[in-house]
């Protein structure tokens, strides 16, 4: 083309190991190892077998983390998932008690979650002016409200025929089914986010939705899809939660949305959108799960555990900010 200066532009990525290790994800891996050593030190019961046995209790929240990470990457937020889990779990219990075959229960539960997600997605699709925070604040109250109506004045339901759910919480060797499922889903979510056009679109929309729209990315459709995905996984989480608790009540899933968001943010996925890696979210989820198991084993007050998690969450965002600020000052002096 005219006016060419013959300048060349470098296009080979430099794979610097140092950079990888000193990335947030690298630090999380180190922290993961550290947490495990720490737990082993404080609790003699912290063995692989024990950890795996206790893990399913916490794993259902990881199902929420996966699509929540996508939602945050989009620059959106969904605070209705806890309520979706509640509603889906209620539906699961009631369907089981109504003698629906277990396959049917699974389908209905997941479908319930998916529909909840679609409702969010649909409102956001039709009214893009609305922030997802407000929309999901509204649906949060509605979804749990519906569960409350279904649960009636007693406010809780127990599964009478637990066979199906017990099968769901089965194990292969020392590994519970759900552990594999989490790993498989996690792997799929990681690959989707880094290797596919869908993943690239997520980051593009989260970084600059207007440029993405102008570039022909179907912004509304992807947003709808991700919120539906969120609901669907809330349904899956509800299934596994029920297979731990064999029942549901009006407070089921309370605060799950916060836990999922906290895991993602701790994993380096910013609520501002367009930043962070799925793998970081996954590692941080396992850090939190291991920490909870370890601290649970020494019978630490669960409230203290929450305080620790809250502090970790704030520090995870605060420390990089502070060090960036210090770095800036240092450079200024030169």
């Amino acid at each position: 083309m005219a006016g060419k200066s013959g300048r060349t532009i470098e296009a080979t990525p430099q794979d610097v190991w140092k950079k990888r290790i000193f990335s947030w994800e690298g630090m999380l891996v180190v922290l993961f190892l550290f947490i495990n050593i720490f737990c082993r030190c404080i609790s003699p019961n912290y063995t692989v077998a024990n950890v795996l046995r206790e893990m399913p209790k916490y794993l259902s929240e990881i199902f929420l983390l996966l699509p929540m990470a996508y939602i945050l990457m989009l620059g959106e937020i969904d605070i209705s998932v806890g309520s979706t889990v509640c509603l889906a779990a209620t539906v699961a219990c009631m369907a089981t008690n109504a003698n629906v075959p277990f396959v049917g229960v699974i389908l209905i539960t997941i479908l319930t979650g998916a529909v909840c997600g679609m409702v969010n997605g649909f409102i956001l699709l039709k009214f893009p002016e609305l922030p997802s925070m407000i929309v999901t604040l509204g649906t949060q109250i509605v979804f749990r409200g519906i569960a409350e109506i279904m649960l009636g004045s007693g406010g809780s339901v127990s599964v009478t025929n637990t066979a199906g759910f017990r099968a769901l919480s089965g194990e292969i060797g020392p590994f519970p089914y759900v552990f594999f499922l989490v790993l498989i889903c996690g792997a799929i979510f990681v690959v989707l986010s880094v290797k596919t056009t869908f993943g690239r679109s997520l980051y593009a929309i989260g970084s600059n939705s207007r440029t993405s729209f102008y570039s022909g990315i179907k912004v509304g459709k992807i947003r709808f899809l991700v919120f539906t995905l969120m609901g669907t996984f809330a349904g899956i989480a509800a299934l596994f939660l029920t297979s731990e608790l064999y029942g549901a009540n009006t407070t089921t899933g309370n605060g799950f949305e916060m836990d999922a968001i906290a895991m993602a943010v701790f994993g380096g996925i910013s609520t501002a959108g367009g930043k962070g890696k799925m793998i970081g979210g996954l590692i941080s989820a396992f850090i939190i799960v291991c920490l909870r198991i370890g601290l649970g084993q020494i019978n630490m007050n669960p409230q203290v555990v929450l305080i620790i998690l809250g502090a970790l969450l704030i520090c995870a965002v605060l420390i990089p900010n502070i060090s960036a600020g210090l770095g800036l000052k240092k450079r200024k002096k030169i």
């Binding site: 207007r210 102008y214 570039s215």
Partner: peptide, 20 residues
């Protein structure tokens, strides 16, 4: 605001519409 994703590398900006 509408043509580029400023925090992205140049390469990815160029290929955004034709990723498929």
């Amino acid at each position: 605001k509408a043509g580029l994703i400023l925090e992205w590398g140049l390469g990815r900006n160029v290929t955004l519409p034709i990723l498929r």
